[in-house]
Amino acid sequence: MENFTPVSALIGGAFIGLSASLLLLSLGRIAGISGIIGSLLTPGRSGAPWRLPFVIGLLLGPFVVMIIGSALNAAPPEITIEASWPTLVLGGLLVGFGTRLGSGCTSGHGVCGIARLSPRSLVATGLFMAAGAAVVFIARHVIGG
């Protein structure tokens, strides 16, 4: 477990949880990224004035971390994407279609749904974790190795 980063995981997770609490207690909305993006893509559904600013904030968040990080001489975030271009295409389509069909992703089901003990979200989170693990297992240990 040489790559395990418990401190940054806990601090980052706290920010995500605070975001979900803020959105719920102030506006009464669920911080589900796939639902927010899906609504922005749907004419007539994007009327809620908080969704586009949320996505802009989501995009600006990494810049805030990088600016503060460089002032503290911290290393910039490391990004490693191993997927080939055809895999990126297939993965993107599956994530986009699947999250809309299943009404949520890691944030909506995995964080907000479990936080409110929704049985649908508990099942969905177990299933997408299992499917992800199965795909990684096949790719790394059956095909790859």
Binding site: G12, F15, L22, P53, L58
Partner: peptide, 14 residues
Amino acid sequence: LAGLLFGIGLTISQ
């Protein structure tokens, strides 16, 4: 603000 917190959290947590 909520989006910023979310994006900051995803970046810090890698």
